[in-house]
Amino acid sequence: MPPIVSFFLRRLLGALPVLVVVLVGSFLLLEAASGDAVDSYVARSGAMDAEQMAQLRQDWGLDKGPLYRFRAYATALAEGDLGWSTSFERPVASVIFERLPITLLLMGVATALAFSLGSFLGILAGASPGSFRDRFLSIASLAIYAVPGFWLGLVLIVIFAVDLRWLPVGGIETIASGKSGLARLGDIAAHLILPVASLAMVYLVLYLRLMRDRMSEIWRDPFVSALEARGISRSRIVWRHVARNAVLPVVTMLGLQAAAMLGGSVVVESVFAIPGFGRLAAEAVARRDTPLLLGVILCSAVTVIIANLLVDLAYGKLDPRVRAGR
């Protein structure tokens, strides 16, 4: 087995206890809800007599104790079955896997943008700590850091979709546009610009600040004066040495922020009417669809674990000291 595969498997196995805690915890939490899935089903689909409701409870296993239900859920889960969504009337897994790719695309593009532009601006600020450029970027980033993503989304809609009419108001692509190939890709890209910007902005300034702060610490490292003594040019010291060293903790942050960004996508997707995984979470809550909500929580935990794994792999590639230690 290639080392990278065994590393991957070992890490996934190591994450298993955490997933079990997530499963038990969210199961317990959702058990505490007053009223069950049948109640909410009836509330939505209209009249149903007591006998029908009892039958449905039996069908969904709701007449048994919580321990029984947990065991049933866990057994099914081991086979990849996430249960039945009462509001979509489809298997939870199929609903989730239909919605997940859009959110992963949104998060992936947002992360890439936030990381690349954020660390680039961070390098500009950190290249000379205390300079005017540094102070300007620091103050601007502090102000932007306070802006909630969903509100930023609304402001962007007002400016770019309503006033200027440059970009679509929402959705993931133009409905029934008949576009295909590149034209369709372009259409999706145009729909993605505003949501990505709203989701990425906070992380962009976060990475900017991290990069800048780390760089200003690294300037005090003795190896920097050794480089100066060797006559290495200032720009090479900034980009190839100081920034290269400073980017490592920023990469670690990428993994830690995966959970937060997934949470952020719930609101941003709602603002832009994007039928993704995040909005699914809000829908599951609004429709009191407990199996779906449980599935959403588990899937987001798995997504976060995998994101962290990928970040650790990337970190290992970037930091030779970790690579050797593995």
Partner: peptide
């Protein structure tokens, strides 16, 4: 004189003389 070209410098702490990730 240009640092590095005309003057070479050797420091006390060898660990601090080298970039750890290059």
């Amino acid at each position: 004189p240009k640092p590095g070209k005309d003057i070479g410098v050797l420091f006390q702490d060898p660990s601090g003389s080298l970039d750890p990730v290059m």
